[in-house]
């Protein structure tokens, strides 16, 4: 099994879109390495013949009648947004400089 060092934490934090301080990176690298070693034992427990379970209770697809329901009130929703404009969410520019 691989280990989690600081460079790996920085890579993962980038994937997860979380800014971390240098202190956080160092601390997480140590902690996650211990945790990953502990949980890595799962790969030794089940053989290839065991099917995976994604859900505790077996599921079948659920359909409902196609009838209009109630929706959330737009103004109520937007009142809780960090920024709104003209009845819409206002967001920062979505493309970077190099795009």
């Amino acid at each position: 099994m691989s280990t989690i060092d600081s460079a790996e934490v920085v890579r993962l934090a980038g994937l997860a879109r979380i800014d971390l301080t240098e202190d956080e990176v160092t601390r997480l690298a140590g902690e996650l390495d211990v945790i990953v070693q502990a949980v890595a034992t799962v790969s030794e427990v089940a053989g290839p013949g065991v099917p995976a379970t994604s859900h505790p209770i077996p599921l079948t697809n659920v359909f409902r009648d196609d009838v209009p329901g109630e929706t959330l009130d737009r103004d109520e929703v937007l009142s809780q947004a960090p920024e709104a404009e003209d009845g819409k969410f206002a967001v920062p520019q979505i493309l970077g400089e190099d795009a």
């Binding site: 099994m1 691989s2 989690i4 790996e8 993962l12 994937l15 997860a16 996650l32 990953v36 949980v39 890595a40 799962v42 790969s43 427990v45 089940a46 065991v50 099917p51 995976a52 379970t53 994604s54 505790p56």
Partner: peptide, 22 residues
């Protein structure tokens, strides 16, 4: 994010779901 990332998915998340069956 680590458990789901490319190259680790089967060893971690996949194995954990098998343990769930057991």
């Amino acid at each position: 994010t680590y458990a789901l990332s490319a190259g680790y998915y089967d060893a971690y998340y996949g194995s954990a779901q098998k343990v769930r069956t057991l």
